[in-house]
Nucleic acid binder design. Structure first.
Lengths: 139, 139
DNA sequence: CAATAAACCTATCGTACAGATAGGAAATAT
DNA sequence: ATATTTCCTATCTGTACGATAGGTTTATTG
């Protein structure tokens, strides 16, 4: 289950991708457009800045901007930062202690296959894809 | 994230599938083999019985048995019972209130695609597949 | 009929984490 | 100087996961 943190992070990235050349965009504007609490969003953007996906500038005229082109961010990269883990089961999480049943477990391959599939899916979609494709296709 | 409930349920189904023609298998034996607390497992099996995936018989010589052939249970069916929801995001859960941003949301299609993919994956694997294929392939 | 073995039922509990809120400190512009 | 904005730290609440405990009903067996 993807948390609001990850979902909000993606929406912010798309929001910024839709404003190329506008320089630094203040959190306030993003939060208002996206209908997300400013304070909560702040904590999310902090981790994106810390990991170099965004640049933040303080003071008047400050805000946030992308550090690369939208096509250079994969969905996976963003979710990996904001989610605790993308692994579908605890025993596949990084740093998990080795399951004593791993050699006889009849379900382990099921989870490995799922994990692989999800990772590939998220790897294959960029912020640019979301900005271009998403939204109301149901016309 | 799949909970222990769903993971344990699958392991129990496979465990029973590996014992065809043994009649009713007591919870005690399953729990011991799988290394799971009896009491906890009990609550999981209850829901499987209630939904007709297993038959339970009380009293001496009682236990649990499959109600169909192992190839007639899909993984999805089992997980759907034990997991609260398989939807990757809250807005896709059944009975969720309609998101007011659903027509402009740039990420909704991303989640729909993921949900579809996961459902198809789980639909395509049966308990018989798990019993046959899983485990140590790394020989 | 008594004893035993098993599923069934109800209630409780601790812990962790998601989701959020609040208040202030530091930096940048005008 | 003042306004604006990110940055930092701390705190709070509800909820669901994961588990445990004790008792009740049903069936078999000697």
């Amino acid at each position: 289950m993807i948390s609001t943190k990850g979902r909000y992070a993606l929406r912010v990235m798309v929001d910024l991708a839709e404003r190329p050349g506008e320089g630094f965009v203040p959190l306030r504007d993003i939060a208002k457009r996206q209908g997300i609490s400013e304070k909560y969003l702040e904590s999310i953007l902090k981790s994106l800045v810390k990991n170099g996906l965004l640049r933040g500038l303080r003071g008047k005229g400050g805000g946030y901007k992308l550090t690369r082109g939208p096509e250079e961010y994969t969905v996976r990269e963003i979710l990996a930062l904001t989610e605790e883990s993308l692994a579908p089961v605890a025993c596949l999480e990084e740093g998990a202690e080795l399951c004593p049943r791993r050699d006889i477990c009849k379900t382990l391959d099921l989870w490995r296959g799922l994990y692989d599939m999800i990772n590939k899916y998220f790897d294959g979609i960029t912020v640019a894809d979301l900005a271009a494709g998403g939204g109301s296709r149901d016309i």
